[in-house]
Simulated scan of single mutants.
Amino acid sequence: MSSAPYLCPKCGTNRSRFNVIEQIPQSVRLDMHTGEIIEYISQSDPIQVQYHGDRYRVQCGVCGLIETEEMFLRFAESHPLST
């Protein structure tokens, strides 16, 4: 997580209320008929593709938008607070 300011790109007003969502992938094998989890698969399983997504996502605490941290950082960077 960055220690730089955020700004929501959707509502354009929120700079202080956010939810940080940590994504922790779990590889599973499902029963194809019921959808129930049959087993949890090891990350080293040669057949299972590894997750390569973002470790964190950010949700605006005002409007609910969920995006990458980079999106909130760049919007804040391009819309600095006036002093």
Rank of each mutant, 00 (worst) to 15 (best):
P25V: 00
I47A: 10
D45R: 05
H52M: 10
V28N: 06
M71L: 10
Q23K: 12
N19F: 12
E39M: 12
D54A: 15
Q50K: 15
M32P: 11
Q26C: 01
T68D: 08
S27A: 09
I37P: 01
E39W: 07
F18T: 04
R57E: 07
Y51V: 00
Y56S: 03
M32E: 12
L81P: 03
P46Y: 07
D54F: 11
R17E: 07
P80M: 03
V28A: 06
S44E: 15
Y51S: 04
R29D: 03
I41A: 09
I41H: 05
E36T: 05
V62M: 02
I21T: 13
D54G: 15
V58E: 04
E70S: 12
Q26I: 06
Y56K: 06
Q59C: 07
C60N: 06
Q26A: 00
I37T: 15
Q48R: 06
S44R: 15
F72E: 05
E22F: 06
T83I: 01
I47W: 01
L73H: 09
S82H: 00
S78C: 03
E69F: 03
I24N: 15
F18G: 08
T83Y: 00
Q43A: 13
L65T: 09
V20M: 13
D54T: 11
Q50V: 12
L30C: 08
R15S: 08
Q48T: 07
E70R: 14
E22L: 13
E39R: 14
H79S: 07
E69R: 02
V20H: 11
Y51W: 10
V62Y: 03
V62R: 02
V58M: 10
S44P: 01
T34K: 13
H52F: 02
E22D: 08
Y56F: 13
Y56G: 01
E70V: 11
E36M: 06
I38H: 07
